[in-house]
Design a binder for these strands. Structure first.
Length: 563
RNA sequence: GCGCCUUUAGCUCAGCAGGAUAGAGCAGCAGCCUCCUAAGCUGCAGGUCAGAGGUUCAAAUCCUCUAAGGCGCGCCA
């Protein structure tokens, strides 16, 4: 934030001999309480250097620091507290937001580098569950944030479209399947078959063998198996695309696991050439004892490939295709070990970019304290939750704003926004216990709350016939606006932090705070009061609306002008 | 057994490259719509920051140990 740089510069003028500028900058903090001003400099570490009481150092500094930016600089409890000139800074900030428009907060830290993002990755022939939502929305938000930061994200949907589970599914279909039923309700029917297979397999272990057999046939290109696999895949994709449409998400690539079927030999050969493969219990592994990791399984004892093999092939393919600077994997935390192994193997292969693979883990979505399991049929279907949320949004609209023009579309935006926001507002690594009640809450710290705040702001602007294009001079004391203005000031900083920590929740929190600040303002100040400051207040409202919309947009959430 | 993650108000969580009095939301209670959308606002109440040591002028924040919960640990992905 440039105001803190100003403060640091002013302090540096006095402290030249004792502290470098960077260190001063680092020490500067934002006070928790408004009575301590907007910027604070603690003098405790200086007290050691100068061998003086922090209080008296603060006294001296506060007298020495001067800048038109500050209306007051005072010493308190060993701190130098600087109070920004609200009138002047409000004017500066609002004019900047209005001038830069959507470009406000845009950063150039990415320098056009490509960032690959492995995200969403639902499993074919299984329903899109609440569990997949996290990877999808976190990945989407990271992509948006990275783009805002000057990177070029490439979104890859690494579909789970290969593996033993398809053998099982084919076996189940051959045994109990009904073509007509599958055609009518593909995912539902396929899931039922899958669950039934696991049910029966508990009593009849013979089934497992049949499943493996069918998968082998599939891998060998057996016509019957391939046709069924393609059919299942097709139907699943149709299903998924409905959900992605609701969420308003698109991908740059749908290259799933099957895509790498013919790309693994090469990798295995390379591992062999480099002498990294070891036979162990009839399987081929890369030993990682030095890294204190368990061995990474490359080939099963029957010669079949595994997850790790596939991911290695994918890593190479992505490097060669996209020339990424970083390759992100938005995948649950339970796969930490796998990604450590992946990186280690690449490093052993001598790939300089091994450490550019970054696992972005997240906590689990659980139900009643337990992991959701597809096999046991204990899944909550995302689409059902989405529809329920949209229906509730619709109900609210009918209740509160029955005259609204495009109810269906707004209900979708709000209903979906509630779900996405609910997922992104908390720190990635927290486990989430699925609660329909929490998700369908539209009050408090929720997506609809922010959307509502935005709609209110838009409503004022509409009534006033405000046009953001017109240049205008801001004349506000900035007192009532201050909290919001202060947040607008730190918006670019929030984006940078979100990018550096791969943490969308930073933006969610910042946006919530701005909405809260504005709602307070709204309750206190009549914007449309006809006086000489009305235009300035409208400019303020317009800036708030813009940043609320932008904040939501960075989370992948739409912001209707009216709701 | 080993490794990783988590533990802050009744519930869900912020706050963590150490800094001043630990903050929100929900739930509870009490208020606010002749006024720009009450999906809102105001107030009250609610805390040994899991526990014990340590480092420091200063620890919810860093280190060590303990406890509880979760997730991993070779032929699933």
């Amino acid at each position: 934030m440039r105001f803190s740089e100003e403060f640091a510069a002013a302090l540096y003028q006095v402290l030249k001999d004792d502290l470098p500028k960077e260190e001063i900058q680092q020490l500067i903090e934002k006070p928790k309480h408004a009575e301590h001003g907007d910027l604070a400099f603690p003098c405790f570490s200086l007290a050691k250097i100068q061998r003086m009481a922090p209080q008296s150092i603060a006294e001296q500094l506060s007298r020495a620091v001067q800048s038109p930016l500050f209306e007051k600089v005072e010493a308190a409890g060993g701190y130098v507290n600087a109070f920004l000139d609200k009138k002047y800074v409000t004017k500066l900030v609002l004019e900047e937001v209005m001038a830069k428009k959507e470009q406000y907060g845009t950063l150039h830290i990415g320098k056009g580098e490509v960032i690959a993002i492995d995200m969403s990755s639902p499993n074919i022939a299984k329903p899109f569950s609440m569990g997949h939502l996290r990877s999808t929305v976190i990945g989407q938000s990271l992509a948006l944030l990275l783009a805002k930061g000057g990177y070029r994200p490439v979104k890859i949907n690494h579909l789970g479209d290969w593996g033993t589970q398809f053998g099982k599914l084919i076996a189940a279909y051959k045994k109990w399947g009904d073509e007509q039923k599958v055609k009518e309700q593909p995912i539902k029917e396929l899931l039922a078959l899958y669950v039934k297979f696991h049910d029966e397999a508990e009593r009849n272990p013979e089934l497992e063998a049949q499943g493996r057999q069918w998968f082998k046939r599939l891998e060998d290109g057996d016509q019957e198996a391939v046709v069924l696999w393609e059919w299942f895949r097709e139907e699943s994709l149709k299903d998924f695309s409905r959900i992605y449409q609701l969420l308003n998400i698109e991908f740059d690539s749908y290259a799933g696991e099957a895509f790498y079927n013919d790309k693994m030999d090469r990798i295995v050969r390379r591992l062999e050439e480099k002498g990294l493969l070891t036979e162990s219990e009839q399987a081929q592994v890369v030993l990682l004892a030095e890294e204190e990791l368990p061995p990474c399984l490359i080939k099963k004892s029957d010669g079949a490939t595994l997850y790790a093999t596939r991911d290695l092939a994918a890593a190479f393919y992505r490097k060669e295709t996209y020339h990424f600077a970083k390759s992100l994997y938005v995948v649950g935390g339970e796969q930490r070990l796998h990604f450590k192994q992946l990186t280690s193997v690449l490093r052993r292969m001598g790939e300089s970019w091994a450490d550019d693979l970054i696992h972005i883990p997240f906590g689990m979505m659980r139900k009643d304290g337990k992991k959701m399991s597809t096999r046991k049929g204990q899944v909550v279907l995302l689409e059902e939750v989405l529809q329920e949320s949209i229906a509730l949004a619709k109900k609210n609209i009918e209740l509160k704003n029955p005259g609204l023009a495009n109810k269906e579309e707004v209900a979708r935006q709000v209903g979906v926004g509630a779900i996405v926001f609910n997922d992104l507002k908390n720190y990635r690594l927290n486990n989430i216990d699925f609660s329909l009640e929490d998700i369908l809450r539209f009050e408090g710290e929720t997506g609809p709350y922010v959307q509502y705040t935005h709609a209110r702001a838009c409503s004022i602007l509409r009534k006033a016939g405000f046009h953001a294009e017109e240049k205008r001079t801001i004349v506000l004391s900035g007192e009532k606006e201050w909290e919001a203005v202060s947040l607008m000031m730190s918006f670019p900083e929030a984006i940078e932090k979100a990018i550096n920590d791969f943490d969308p929740s930073r933006i969610a929190k910042h946006t919530i705070q701005l909405a809260q600040a504005f709602n307070k303002y709204y309750a206190e100040v009549k914007v449309l009061e006809e006086d000489e400051q009305q235009l300035s207040r409208l400019a303020f409202v317009s800036a708030v609306a813009q940043l609320l919309k932008e904040g939501l947009a960075l989370l992948g959430i739409e912001a209707p002008d009216e709701m």
